[in-house]
């Protein structure tokens, strides 16, 4: 059962990721991104991170991808891009080499460290009826005890990001009048 879940979520993640990279229409790429994000959420559930799975679906698939789709349709860039045109001829094979190299190096490091991860005495987090909200409780205790300052800082960060984006994307009323000139 665990194997089945892993295979399904891995297939979702990889198909979606390849779709993001290879689909020429940005709308299709965004929808492939949704597939990947749902696959990651399924993996989070399989790893007993229930709170993060819910947050992943709500924030990523619900908010970020919708933001992407809004921007795509607002700007009218939803026409397909011709992927065969490549102004820098070297760039594409070089990108293949570099990305496979990065993945290969990371995988080699993981395989080397496999023995230290394969300690059977410590398994996954406990499951069962008594632990149905244990994950949320643990995360809340950790955030609001030792990470309170960082948590408050994220609210400042979000506020600054929202105000800055409103300023950036504000439509200028008339040429010369709307844009304040800085000294």
């Amino acid at each position: 059962m665990a194997l089945f879940v892993f295979v399904c979520s891995a297939a979702m993640i990889l198909v979606g990721a390849l779709g993001v990279v290879t689909r020429s229409n940005p709308v299709h790429a965004a929808l492939s991104l949704v597939l990947t994000l749902f696959g990651v959420a399924v993996t989070f559930v399989a790893l007993q991170a229930h709170f993060l799975a819910a947050v992943q679906v709500i924030v990523y698939a619900g908010a970020i991808v919708v933001l992407f789709l809004f921007v795509i349709m607002l700007l009218g860039v939803d026409r397909a891009e011709n992927l065969r045109i490549e102004p820098l001829r070297v760039q594409r094979p070089l990108a293949f080499v570099v990305s496979t190299g990065v993945a290969a190096v990371v995988i080699a490091a993981i395989v080397r460290a496999r023995d230290s991860l394969a300690d059977p005495s410590r398994g996954l987090a406990p499951t069962g009826a008594d632990a149905h909200d244990a994950n949320v409780r643990e995360i809340a205790r950790e955030i609001f005890s030792s990470n309170t300052f960082a948590f408050e800082l994220t609210s400042v960060l979000l506020l600054v990001a929202v105000v800055g984006t409103v300023l950036l994307a504000r439509r200028q009323r008339s040429p010369g009048a709307g844009h304040p000139v800085r000294p």
């Binding site: 665990a2 194997l3 892993f6 891995a10 993640i13 990889l14 990721a17 390849l18 993001v20 990279v21 990947t36 993996t43 399989a46 790893l47 760039q91 594409r92 070089l94 990108a95 293949f96 570099v98 990305s99 496979t100 990065v102 993945a103 990371v106 995988i107 993981i110 395989v111 496999r114 991860l117 394969a118």
Partner: peptide, 24 residues
């Protein structure tokens, strides 16, 4: 049963695909 190594390898492959997308 899938072990932690499998998840880490999956994450590495996903990271590689993302790198490719940024560059291509």
């Amino acid at each position: 049963v899938p072990t932690t190594t499998w998840y880490l390898v999956l994450a590495a492959v996903l990271f590689g695909i993302g790198t490719l997308g940024v560059m291509v």
